[in-house]
Design a protein around this nucleic acid. Structure first.
Length: 562
RNA sequence: UGUCCGAUGGUGUAAUGGUAACACUGCAGAUUUUGGUUCUGCCUUUCCAGGUUCGAAUCCUGGUCGGACAACCA
């Protein structure tokens, strides 16, 4: 035992540390502690959102607080209920439950009254300028803007015009409501930001009730405030919005929610922006938002990732305030770690090569015992059949093997997992010189578990009994992009798509025991990786997706010599 | 030539004025009826220059480099 009697102090991230301190000082209580996850329902959630979800829900859970789910639905033209449903499903699948389900649109009436209040205080005005004019008057980051000619309208006139905006008397873009702050502010967001714009558009929840919609800056902070959110956690790009977030809350005299920022999570060899993911979907580069190569939550779920492994990834990757590109290896490592513990082992041959055992009796079938998971605390076994003809992996036989190749070669021996040692006697070829099948002999006294042969082989390979094998389709996935940071490359990010990101093996052979399991169960196909049944898999046409490979020292060795 | 933010191994994060560490990756080895798992070892780190201090990754000053901000998007 250690002589150190201090208990190992758990390392907290900077936000946990802050909240921990505030809880201790009494600035907030556990009862008050309230975070929120505020997606805009205009796309599917991705791994970056997963980090945010784990952070927001995780931090509240850790300190005894709660988390609201609030859809930031202030832009009716891009939003849709399809996205609302997928977002809710994804959060629940990740294992989190919100305290309340809210929508920014729930607050449209309140927000409107807030705007009226600011107009009455002389802090907001209706502007007739066009979008172009407003942009021109905004100045640049290094150059002050100029006041709008409509900036000093009377309160009464502003009130009248804003009412008429709401009543639909104006066309889209004809007028806006702006906060009256400071056109010379070094912070662009404080140069009389837009609060409301006119959009005669149908909203997925409020229908045609409104034709003016609040901008993000006039909706988000106030929504936080209305809900009494104590910690509004968002990504770094909103940092420059914080003075504005605080300005509205202060001028309105409402509950002082506070905003905190962290750096978004990037992962190598993929892109993590809704806009780019939408492009991949729209241009049919992938098979929808849940294509197993997509970094969306629905994509990795279909690929075979577990919620636990993603939560663990978020935890292990941590958070900070600096730009980052996390190694995708870390993600895969988290998945392997979990699947190694829970996935039942089975045998499947994705690229079959027929082997005939010359000295095995014809029409005989033997039943062998196979361990389901060597990692399990309690060992369980299943029956597998063995007979004269079997399939092995094409990659497990080489006629002219390089040094270091331990598998089957002419005259060489390997063990068939859970079965016998075999020796290759003859390679049978087609007319074109390709290998059609190989003829072997088996060593009867080498049966697994009762081996009296005394023969030592260098390798154990997987196989499937030809007489009982089921034909299935197996899909192997690789990285979606060929470069670490597709975003940072020159030109179109889509030109860096990996052409080999999907390989389909339509004639794979799987052992029949596989058919007895649940559809969302993960398996290890021995020596090949971890797999899950695809959503389009049917009893007549089984489809298996590879979630992740096993670590493969031999493949690594091969790569080096290429 | 503005404002704000950031800089710790290859990558991601810890260390909160007191011996720079953990994970992933990579490399080497042991074990292994999965070239898996497990185990062992190794490589590699505080952006620079000053200052404060007995002592600085940490505090201060000045640089350098990187990022965010000029949507009627969020």
């Amino acid at each position: 035992m250690s002589h150190n009697n201090k208990t190992e102090k758990e390392s907290l991230n900077f936000l946990e540390e802050l909240i921990d301190a505030e809880l201790h000082s009494g600035r907030v209580t556990r009862e008050q502690l309230l975070t929120r996850f505020p997606p805009e329902p205009n796309g599917y959630l991705h791994l970056g959102h997963a980090s945010s979800i784990c952070l927001n829900f995780g931090i509240a859970k850790k300190f005894g607080g709660r988390t609201n789910l609030r859809f930031d639905d202030t832009n009716p033209v891009t939003e849709d209920t399809e996205y609302v449903e997928s977002i809710k499903a994804d959060i629940q699948w990740l294992g989190f439950q919100w305290a309340n389900e809210f929508y920014a649109s729930d607050y449209f009436e309140t927000l409107y009254s807030y705007a009226v209040e600011l107009i009455k205080k002389g802090l907001a005005y209706v502007d007739d300028s066009t979008a172009e004019q407003i942009a021109a008057m905004k100045g640049t980051p290094t150059q002050a803007g100029t006041d709008s000619p409509f900036r000093n309208r009377s309160v009464d006139e502003n009130l009248d015009l804003f009412t008429r905006m709401r009543n639909g008397e104006f066309k889209d873009g004809e007028k806006t409501l702006r906060a009256k702050i400071d056109m010379a502010s070094p912070n662009m967001h404080l140069r009389d930001p837009l609060m409301y714009r006119i959009k005669h558009a149908h909203h997925h929840r409020t229908g045609d009730k409104w034709c003016i919609y609040p901008m993000y800056d006039f909706a988000h902070g106030q929504s936080d405030s209305i809900e009494n959110i104590t910690h509004s956690i968002c990504t770094l790009e909103f940092e420059v919005h914080k003075p504005l977030y605080n300005w509205f809350i202060e001028k309105l005299g409402i509950f002082p929610s506070r905003q905190f920022e962290f750096a978004r999570r990037n992962i190598s060899y993929t892109v993590m922006s809704k806009r780019k993911l939408l492009q991949l979907v729209n241009e049919k580069i992938v098979d929808g938002w849940d294509d197993p190569r997509m970094p969306t939550i629905s994509g990795v779920r279909r690929r075979g990732y577990t919620a636990e492994s993603i939560r663990n990834f978020a935890d292990v990757a941590g958070i900070s305030r600096r730009e980052n590109v996390t190694d995708y290896n870390l993600l895969e490592s988290c998945l392997r770690e979990h699947l190694n513990k829970i996935a039942a082992r089975t045998m499947a041959v994705i690229n079959p090569l027929k082997v005939v055992l010359l000295n095995y009796e014809e029409n005989k079938t033997e039943t062998l015992k196979a361990e389901n998971n060597p990692e399990a605390a309690e060992k369980t076994y299943r029956d597998i059949s063995f007979s004269r003809e079997i399939y092995i992996e094409k990659d497990d036989f080489m006629e002219h093997a390089p040094e270091g190749f331990f598998r089957l070669t002419p005259g060489g021996m390997v063990r068939l997992k859970h079965a016998y040692i075999i020796r290759c006697e003859k390679v049978v070829k087609n007319d074109d010189g390709s290998i059609s099948e190989i003829h072997c002999t088996y060593i009867p006294e080498s049966k697994s578990g009762q081996d009296k042969s005394g023969i030592k082989v260098k390798s154990v390979i997987h196989w499937v009994d030809a007489s009982s094998a089921i034909t299935a389709e197996v899909r192997l996935y690789d990285k979606l992009f060929t470069v670490e940071a597709p975003d940072a490359q020159e030109g179109d990010f889509k030109s860096y798509i990996n052409p080999d990101s999907l390989k389909v093996f339509a004639e794979a052979k799987v052992e029949p025991a596989l058919l007895k399991h649940d559809k969302d169960e993960r398996f290890q196909f021995l020596r090949l990786g971890y797999f899950v049944e695809d959503k389009y898999s049917t009893p007549e046409h089984r489809i298996y997706n590879r979630a992740v490979t096993l670590k493969d020292e031999w493949a690594k060795e091969q790569k080096k010599h290429r």
